[in-house]
Nucleic acid binder design. Structure first.
Length: 444
DNA sequence: AGCACA
């Protein structure tokens, strides 16, 4: 009747739907319990439990609208309320006509993981740390993070369900290794389910979202500072996401700084895996890759602001790169992969300088004197994967070098920096022009 | 006790 439809309705009534919305359920109510509840009234074709902030809501979908109406009608006039485990359950028609993302989405493997980071400091976990953690299992295409009632969450997109499930199996319920987290942070536990997403939409590189397949995606202005590095200020504190790859720029470069010089300087802190040099903004920059974040942190703190040569020449400015694994296409005078054994090096040269700790870059810069360098174009002692004794640790520095162990969930061969060339997947986009002064591996 | 993954 037309006159009825225009009448005001009760505030909380809904038009009928095959889908019923249930609330006040006991926590972690099961699908079986929902089916038990609905079965007397018809065929339950789908359910969704643990809905809402308190996980105490659910949906039941009947095969037929009349079955849903029968259930609502029954309990509307019954003296006994609907109950699950003795707890009164409130029913109404859902405002949707079908359950979307039915319960199987949490169980069917997909290429995108929904990650909930638990812990009082969960929101301090940077997207870069998440990237590092998940990259151990395969190329991570994209990450988005967001705050939900469930807490701080991230969606992590892999190439396929296989790599996603290996990450899920290894990481679900595990804590992020503390050395990847800012100091004084409590434990952060990862809870992982599959997302129904297959391809995340990332518009900007920012502190909340990243697309690692598209190096030329614009960076959100809010996420960068003057040096072009991400610096997310949480409670006003500057948080530079740490990385195992350092970006070094060289100021006042009166003398040539070669790959070998950089290798020698940075090797004092740990095995240098890869170096890539390139020109940017009229200067020289280099990416230096260590096997782990911790070594990079130590090197950065020791070297930042120091000069390679006496007299204030070749001053190093070091920040963390967002890369975790450089893709070295060819070993030459600007790029080198030291992890590949038996790779013929160009210009093999005798070693110089021995094991001078690089903390002495400032203290004993004459070791790297320009003249000496010019006369003996350098080749550090290491041609191959770093030997066990890759050099003394600068004694004056406090260097927790014990941390070369992989985090507990990482198995040999799956650590991020041993990932194959897929890591820098975006580098080879055929249709994308490389910006000037930007080598193909350089994402920003 | 009031609707699902940004």
């Amino acid at each position: 009747m037309a006159s009825v439809s225009s009448q005001p309705q009760f505030r909380y009534t809904q038009p009928p739907s095959k889908v019923l919305h249930l609330r006040n359920l006991p926590w972690e109510c099961t699908e079986e319990e929902l089916i038990e509840l609905g079965k007397p009234f018809g065929k339950v074709v789908n359910t969704k439990c643990n809905v809402g902030a308190n996980k105490n809501q659910a949906f039941i979908e009947f095969a037929d609208l009349n079955q849903a109406i029968a259930m609502i009608s029954y309990y509307a006039s019954s003296s006994e309320p609907a109950q699950v485990r003795g707890k009164t359950v409130y029913l109404q028609y859902s405002n949707r006509q079908e359950i979307v993302n039915n319960k199987t989405t949490a169980d069917v493997a997909g290429n995108v993981l929904l990650v909930t980071i638990e812990g009082s400091d969960a929101r301090l976990v940077s997207i870069d740390v998440l990237h590092l953690v998940f990259s151990a299992f395969g190329f991570v295409h994209k990450i988005t993070t967001f705050e939900k009632t469930a807490g701080f969450q991230a969606l992590v997109q892999f190439s396929n369900a296989e790599t996603a499930s290996s990450a899920k199996n290894a990481l679900d319920g595990r804590c992020i290794p503390s050395y990847l987290l800012p100091e004084h942070m409590g434990p952060c536990t990862l809870r992982i389910t599959y997302s129904a997403h297959t391809d995340l939409s990332v518009k900007f590189q920012s502190h909340r979202s990243r697309d690692y397949t598209n190096p030329y995606l614009p960076v959100a202005p809010s996420a960068i500072d003057g040096s072009g590095q991400l610096s997310v200020g949480v409670d006003g504190k500057k948080l530079e996401p740490e990385s195992n790859v350092l970006l070094a720029s060289i100021e006042n470069m009166q003398y040539a700084v070669t790959l070998d010089v950089l290798h020698m300087v940075f090797s004092a802190f740990g095995p240098v895996q890869k170096i890539a040099m390139f020109d940017k903004n009229g200067g020289v920059q280099a990416l230096i890759q260590y096997p782990d974040v911790q070594t990079a942190v130590v090197a950065k703190e020791a070297l930042e602001g120091h000069c390679i040569y006496d007299g204030g020449f070749c001053k190093l400015h070091i920040s963390y790169s967002r890369h975790t694994d450089l893709s070295i296409k060819v070993n030459n005078d600007r790029s080198r992969d030291y992890t590949i054994p038996n790779t013929p090096m160009m210009n093999p040269q005798p070693s110089i300088l021995g094991q001078q700790p690089a903390s002495a870059v400032g203290a004993a810069p004459q070791q790297y004197g320009g003249v000496q360098y010019a006369q003996t174009p350098t080749q550090p002692t290491m041609h191959h994967p770093p030997p066990a004794g890759w050099g003394p640790v600068p004694p004056a520095q406090s260097m927790p070098m014990q941390g070369h162990n992989p985090p507990p969930y990482m198995q040999q061969g799956t650590v991020p920096f041993q990932m194959g060339p897929g890591m820098m997947h975006g580098a080879g986009h055929p249709g994308l022009p490389h910006p000037p002064h930007m080598p193909p591996y350089q994402s920003q």
